[in-house]
């Protein structure tokens, strides 16, 4: 039976280093396994579509530019992504990954969330045929 059981904690806290992190003025590196935005390596992709098949929220589209030469462009809807990494798990060729650096993705408009990954020339080809994209 006592009163003010936490006064001691409060008093001691006065003399301790503050626990508050000073983000965004001082940024700590994120943990190595953090699941941030999806990364795509077009050189390794074979277009097997396994990543698309199991995505729970339809966040990935794989657009075929030239099937014979294995040229694909990935359209990634960051706003739909649930960052579950099932696509990374599914990819047998190691062409997908999740960045632990790109996780501050807040934006003031939604257009910023649809991104295209692929070789530079493929991207240009795609964007020139679809001027609205």
């Amino acid at each position: 039976m006592r009163l003010g059981a936490m006064f001691g904690d409060m008093f001691r806290s006065l003399f301790k280093r503050p626990v508050t992190e000073l983000y965004p003025f001082r940024k700590e590196p994120a943990p190595s396994r953090l699941r941030g935005a999806l990364t795509y390596n077009p050189a390794k992709c074979t277009g097997c579509q396994l990543c698309v098949k199991d995505c729970p929220s339809n966040a990935i589209e794989l657009i075929t530019i030239d099937k014979a030469n294995k040229r694909f462009v990935m359209r990634y809807y960051m706003d739909r992504c649930t960052f579950c990494a099932q696509c990374v798990q599914n990819c047998r060729f190691g062409c997908l990954g999740m960045s632990n650096e790109q996780w501050e993705m807040a934006a003031l408009n939604k257009e910023a969330f649809t991104v295209h990954y692929g070789r530079e020339e493929d991207l240009q080809k795609l964007l020139s045929t679809n001027p609205h994209e």
Binding site: R33, R35, A85
Partner: peptide, 19 residues
């Protein structure tokens, strides 16, 4: 977060094991 890569909704399970 260090272990699974996310603070909430860890997605550590896959069917047949863990990630």
């Amino acid at each position: 977060e260090g272990l699974t890569g996310n603070r909430v909704n860890y997605s550590v399970n896959v069917l047949g094991g863990v990630k």
